[in-house]
Design a protein around this nucleic acid. Structure first.
Lengths: 109, 109
DNA sequence: ATAATATTTCGACAAATATGGAAGTGTCAA
DNA sequence: TTGACACTTCCATATTTGTCGAAATATTAT
């Protein structure tokens, strides 16, 4: 089994949890500058130990990264890796959405 | 938490397993006519009870369906649902791939 | 130094997942 | 109606996940 497939599966598994998909959504909207962990916690209203656990999982598979600024940690999506993942679903798996639903250009760069 | 997000997470979780992502890949290539369970088994070389378990999970979340023809069961992807899932990742989460990697039209319809 | 803030790590436990042998079900062929 | 074929369901077990309180770590302010 190819490494690329293993990698894609690992990332999809992380997205495949309601809380983490919610985190993902927040991270996408936050763009490259990222969001503080505390902000995510407020938005989702879950204990910080639970949140931290999810964040570390997402980090581990390369979906996001953390950067410290003073005492707050900012989380930001690794857009390149997410793009690679999405491209895998399209290219490797040869899937096409009807052109109407395909965005003409990126909205998050 | 929205039902749409729950649904997407459930489907992504199923894709987030190497074996099942492999099954997905086979199903995509098979197109609408589908593939026999036995063919998938030969391709992946796993015990049929294990395979059956994965297939039933994928069916349960609406990624694929099974149709019997004689004594062989054919599995086929529910392309509409897969499209909806992919559209969720683009629309709801506002993600864009660089236009170069976005297919101009569907290759599986 | 001490305290407050922001977040992670530890530890423990319940629940879900993954795996595969063995037995069961449906279908066809002789 | 017996047997072969194509799968699924049942069962048991090992592993992974998800959850969260409590303790630990890092940073800044007083």
């Amino acid at each position: 089994m190819s490494l690329e497939l293993e990698q894609a599966a690992a990332q999809l598994a992380e997205l495949g949890h309601p809380t983490r998909l919610g985190i993902f959504r927040i991270l996408v909207r936050a763009g490259h500058q990222g969001v503080a962990v505390g902000e995510i916690q407020q938005a989702l209203d879950i204990p910080n130990s639970t949140l931290s656990h999810h964040l570390s999982r997402m980090t581990k598979v390369g979906l996001m990264a953390q950067r410290r600024d003073g005492r707050t940690l900012y989380c930001s999506l690794l857009f390149n890796n997410v793009e690679t993942l999405l491209a895998f679903l399209y290219d490797e798996c040869c899937l096409g959405l009807p052109s109407a639903t395909v965005p003409q250009s990126s909205c998050c760069d």
